[in-house]
Amino acid sequence: MFKTLLARARQGYRTAGFPAEEPGLPALFRGRPELDPTKCTDGCRQCVDACPTGALRVAEAGVELDIGRCIFCEECVAACPEGAIAFTRDWRVAASRREDLIVTDDNRPRVDALGRELRRLLGRSLRLRQVSAGGCNGCEVEVNALGNVVFDGSRFGIEFVASPRHADGILVTGPVTANMKQALLITYEAVAEPKLVIAAGACAISGGLYRSHPEVSDGIEGLLPVDLYIPGCPPHPITMLDGLLRLLGRL
């Protein structure tokens, strides 16, 4: 007992200051991309050809980057001869609408808070059932980190529960494999109305790296109505926390 108390003193207080303070992300953190289509030269497709997920497109108005597909690998940055693409350290990449994940020179992701009535119903808590539907467990690693003493989602009432019956919604990761589709839909059914759906990670949003594999459904688009998209491969816990807090109107 005495040793346990001593250890408690030694290990100290470790909860992050976010959102009151800056999140202290590493210098090399790859967050929201910024594009400068004016730098693109005619007919250049080098970024498009380098991208492993088909996240880039050269449209009429210049290059567009779909962060719903992006795995933030920076192959495009290396491939671009003009420096038209850069990844900033901005962690705020979650969005309420799928269209808002298409980053251009003037479109950036944003989250609309839930309606007043829904927020009143939720009160000070948001209980989610996580469903892992394919993928690589990377997103689960970061969702789990949301529960540790550093990110500590429970400060804001954000917790992951065992039963969909106890949940206000589901947070889905993975590209939705054929083998998990039914279990995902049953879990969604089991959550009482009104319910939220959060798509976390490139796989759940668009199929990510596994897009157009016959074994997967290209994410939950078209399967379930999505309230919040959290891009990343995997998303940083701060990105998730930021998105969730904005959804709840707390930021």
Partner: peptide, 22 residues
Amino acid sequence: GYQHRGVERALRGGPDRRSLYL
């Protein structure tokens, strides 16, 4: 088998821009 997403099949024909990430 619930996470089966076709990784090995997708690696065939490579190496290509996806291989490392797969």
